[in-house]
Amino acid sequence: MTTIDTTGGTPESAAPRRGGDGALRRYLAALRTPRGAAGAGLLGALVLLALLAPALFPGGYDEQGSGGLAGASAAHWMGTDELGRDILARTVYGLRTDLSLLLTAVPASAVIGTLMGLSGVLSRWLGAGMQRLLDVILGFPGIVLGMSVVLVIGTGWLALFASILVIGLPLFGRQARAGLQIEQEREYVLAARVLGVRRRTVMTRHVLPNIVDPIVVNAAVYMVVAIFIEAGLSIVGLGIQPPIPSLGAMLNTGARYLEVHPAYVMGPGLVLLLLTLAFTLLSNALNKAVLRK
């Protein structure tokens, strides 16, 4: 489907660095750059908008009027959809759906993927097995994988969540494994080993903090991909269940009325673009901050 950058066009994390105590400070510094600030501000505004949806639109997203596909008016700023529902309200609620997916599925994917990548620490065989598993997942085009997941567990929020989670695993897993291999060869790790420090301690104290950076940057990058996945699956008709709106599902339906009601696509399209823009800016800023250090 979309440009799923699972090859990791992100940080060349080879540079040696000290423990992760400075990580948070680095990220905060990234947010103070123009890009970072713009991204964070935009994302903040969108999250706020989504949170305020019930207050802004007390009628909810399913208030059906009599006419359909009406143009803009005082009551409906962006007009109504085919069932006479307010497009603006549905867009904001759709944003809510998208954010609820992104902010849960992407972190889940990052954590599980990282653990899979690091599983080599427990046993060589397990690590190699996981690596092959990730290779296989990576081989599947994102949309095909997503469609398969949806077909196996049925359409709905959970299916979208699972699709986003699974498609992201190789991205995080491979990154974690690469980081692990580099860190394990480093002198301080070898030294710690020689000194008899336990493996687990070496991992948590030394290795893990050093691979956090690329994982965080990748998570920001993957947010954009996750938006593409939701929308892509919606466009092939396997998205969220009606009548709940999502940005992708609205684009899918709206595309049917391009001729008669362009605003139907423009509204959710614009919000979707702002959302991807926010995460793109954030990931750029984080990436730069991490590299600079």
Partner: peptide, 14 residues
């Protein structure tokens, strides 16, 4: 940045 953030289907619809 805008190009990078632009999902292909959205570009298509626009």
């Amino acid at each position: 940045t805008t190009l990078l953030a632009m999902p292909p289907f959205l570009a298509g619809l626009l």
